[in-house]
Design a protein around this nucleic acid. Sequence first.
DNA 1: TCTGGGGTCCTAGGACCC
DNA 2: TCTGGGGTCCTAGGACCC
Length: 418
Amino acid sequence: MFALVDCNNFYASCERLFRPELNGKPVVVLSNNDGCVIARSNEAKAIGIPMGAPAYQYDALFRKHSVSVFSANFPLYGDLSNRVMQILSEYSPEIEIYSIDELFLKLVGFDFFDLQNYGTSMREKVFTWTGIPISVGIAPSKALSKLANRIAKKYPEKTAGVYIIDSEEKIIKALKWLKIEDVWGIGSQLSKKLKAINVFSAYDFTLTNDAWIKKNMGIVGIRLKRDLQGLPTLDLESLGAKKNIATTRTFDRNTNDLNYLEERVSTFAVACAEKLRKQQSCCNSLLVFIHTNGHRQDLAQYHQHILVQLPFPTNSSIELSQFATAALKKIFQAEYQYKKAGVMVQDITPEYQKQLSVFNNSNELHAPLMKAFDKINNIFGQQKIRLGSQDRRIWKMKQERLSPRYTTKLSDIIIVKV
DNA sequence: TCTGGGGTCCTAGGACCC
DNA sequence: TCTGGGGTCCTAGGACCC
């Protein structure tokens, strides 16, 4: 069996942890730049605030219902996620951390266990130790465990947050209940195609013939069908090093100032370099892009990117910053107003297997220098040491309702007076 | 005025090899 | 009139996920 554990309204739950007076009240969390809604408490969902809603369009509704609005506080969510994952990883030796708030567990040798109790104990322990509410779905395959989890979330009273699919009848009942567009792995494009051939539920999908699925969805569709039928086909995925790393941001304003963009791109490259070093990798190519604001029909549009093959693999902040800003200058055009930029590093290889070239290699002095960089920044805080090309101001985002970093910043820790 | 960020896998087609 | 067969690697783009 597989279990899929999912934190309920994760970011909203994190914000409420340190503001217990908000329990039972509507809470939303906004994306970077306070742009759109990326998490909602149940109360906020009930008011009719959709996922992805642009914040400025919902200001009136927020005020009307006294919705508590937070800017995204990723250091807080990341830290709480680690705590939840650590607790849950004790429930099985085989796990896959699927996202910041989701975890698959493979339950082998649990034939004589009461899985309902097992799931309930996960919920109780995570809630007692962290304060985060979770839902648990257990079923014979990954796709079905996602479905079981959905049922647990949808019917919290009936299921007490734990639902188990462990018989053919339950599989069919659940599949008939699940709308095709809600199936894990079927998005808007495929559900449109499927509805056109009268496939409206997950159950209908399991009856669709393989030839159609193969032609329209590829091998992925066939695997999904088997998995939904209860024949475990998708297995846990190993959590190796990332194959692509990106740092991209939307700005709080439009700009055609090349100096500003250079500074941003340099900082993004440094951030990518840090992520590379953290997983002990180097990259062999780098992509820089700049975009105008696609929502503004009144402004001329320009979307451009450039992919640079590096002369040597590197994870040096200095080298990546230089390559990235040089690339930026090649695509920058002063007549446009830019709203977004980003750096992505690709073709990632392990740090310890660098392919050296005869003439042109990464500066060997950078490795110890970067080690010192990382060590100092880890101790004294982000960007205490930075390149001259980077601005002193770290946040160039609109974050008007940022909560404290209660668990990751010494000065933000709550002081209790007794 | 204001609309996020970061990933994965698969496929088709082209270039190239013997 | 008529011109093989079998591979690999790379890239861009499309679908999906949270």
